[in-house]
Design a protein around this nucleic acid. Structure first.
Lengths: 180, 180
DNA sequence: TACGGTAGTGGAGACCTCTCCGGATAGCAA
DNA sequence: TTGCTATCCGGAGAGGTCTCCACTACCGTA
């Protein structure tokens, strides 16, 4: 039984957080709680970590990204699709404050399963397509790939965006080796 | 002109930090300052971030790692040498509390140039050897590689150590493409 | 040896994350 | 309505990071 006031509070927190993060990425949890007219305790009961909150806020964007996989696979060869998708992912991480940290640290957190699971599933789809047509090595692991994506995002956040050459390197590593 | 008391304070901080980190990785800066008989202000003037402190503590280990490059290159083909060296690096990151965070975040910090620079130089040596004998693609970038190493280390810290397969993937990506 | 300029000190304090728990209250039963 | 209680609230507070600046003490000079 979820009490109605609890539901409203959760909604208010999400709304406040959405606004706050839109303005700046380094808003403190306290500020968000205050903005939502709620104590820090309530905030943390709903979202035990900053990551959980960020993921909840950007659930929609992440869903969209995940939903784009079938279309990409329908119009592009698997490797190209993976490249495009990953570029989009990194780009989303850059634009949405905190999303990068959340997704790349999320690998260790069971809390984020709701978001993290689907992302892994999306990557799995992309990789599997490539494995099926023989362009991607069969031992490629979705979790590994996501982890490497974290490095990409960090690279994209630096002074010079090195994410494209790095992605190129990773994709080359993913390619199946034609025996010569 | 460095005052003598300042030099001693710095030494005391390093010694206290060395002990503290040997005991546990999540020692607070305050605790270290206290242990060194010094105010937090003094600690932070000497080492502006936790990373800077960690790097200073493990300077010796890092130096050793860097020094091992010539011997590796003398006894192994470049790709193998790079593989061994990177494995050692990740292993050192795992053993020494906080070193991983320091090195992989260090990519963005000018502060860490003293340690970060030589590490890049070491990677450059390894990559260049491979470029010279044609086993490593000529556009491989040392900074990119270090960044990817960060992902390796994070992967190695997880429940299951996935760093070896991931390293394999990266090395494959680094290989020069023989034109067919 | 006494002294002044200045490099260096260190702790108070602003602000943060996260926890704990006494008190408030929504929702149900009577 | 009223009373009960599981559920939820929210703020005090422990402990952390990092800054600022009034003060201290080192060291070259006379």
């Amino acid at each position: 039984m979820v009490r109605s006031d609890a539901r409203e509070n959760r909604a208010r927190i999400l709304e406040a957080a959405r606004q706050a993060f839109a303005e700046s990425g380094d808003t403190s949890m306290n500020q968000i709680a205050q903005r939502a007219g709620v104590g820090p305790g309530t905030l943390y009961r709903n979202f035990p970590t900053r990551e959980a909150l960020v993921l909840a806020i950007y659930q929609h964007e992440v869903d969209q990204l995940i939903g784009s996989v079938p279309e990409l696979l329908a119009t592009l060869p698997p490797l190209k699709a993976l490249q495009r998708w990953t570029t989009d992912l990194v780009s989303a991480m850059r634009k949405k404050h905190g999303l990068g940290d959340a997704l790349s640290s999320g690998a260790h957190q069971a809390i984020t399963e709701q978001t993290y699971g689907p992302v892994i599933a999306a990557i799995t789809q992309l990789l599997d397509a490539g494995k099926r047509d023989g362009t991607i090595r069969t031992d490629a692991d979705p979790g590994d790939f996501l982890q490497l994506t974290g490095a990409l995002w960090r690279a994209a956040s630096g002074a010079k965006d090195r994410s494209q050459p790095m992605l190129g390197l990773i994709l080359d590593g993913l390619k199946a080796h034609p025996q010569r």
